[in-house]
Amino acid sequence: MAMVQRLQFPGETASIKSVGKPMSEDVAIEVQDLEVSFGNRKVIDGVSLQIPKEQLVSIVGPSGCGKTTVLNLLAGLVDVPRKGKLLVGNKSPRLGDDRIAYMLARDSLLPWRTTLQNACYGMQIRGVPAKLREERARDLLGRVGLAGFENVYPKQLSHGMRQRCALARTFALDAPYLLMDEPFGALDAQTKLTLEELLVELWQQERRTVMFITHDLAEAIAISDRVIVMSARPGRIAGNFAIDLPRPRNIRSLQKEPHFHELYAQIWGVLEDGWRHSDV
């Protein structure tokens, strides 16, 4: 099944011909038969997944299974020989692609910039005119609940507020694809819930395709349209679940819904299986 494809490196703009058949209209991000080794150690072994347009899809899996690696490959951040096909909106990954916005667990706010300047940062790098980006940043800061904190430096913000600002910076970009690597992983439970709600709210206001990586299965189910489970090293796809909880969801009261728990139990089983069958 996994046929040997020619190696592709990030930054290479492969022509449509060289990447095989174009993906279907409503697939935004596609990974096919991906194999990655660092040195002699295979860390990803035949991963295929599709992320439909404008959906919020989570990837869960044990630590070290290669989630970050997949995301970084899609962002064009890592330069490592690999087999398989990666497509973001019909194109090969390219570092600095302005259709992609990338968000990390740590807020990466620049401490010498105010909240407003930080929210503007991505747009500034990508050449949005000053007036426009300020307008957009102010609007987003308002929506993430940071109105009134525009001229404050990051050290004066709480952890949650800093991550709100990072969320504003990410959404302020006019990018259809959002790649998020455990963006709320470092927050306390309450703050995490608030920010999950905020993410879903922003995503519902302006539809983007979100690939959301997390360790937290409850978080994944609560916010996602689909949860993809990876097994431990070397990473493989262990399961792919549609989350049919109706939207809009009240994330805080999902805990009281039996169907949430059914989904949780079902996916948890697969997660655990993947953990047991790993070769580490």
């Binding site: 570092l95 990338y102 620049l110 990508r126």
Partner: peptide, 18 residues
């Protein structure tokens, strides 16, 4: 340098001068 700043800025497609 804080590597998070560097990674973020690279994903944004910054030129070396930026």
């Amino acid at each position: 340098l804080n590597q998070d700043h560097v990674v973020l800025t690279r994903t944004l497609g910054a030129r070396p001068a930026q």
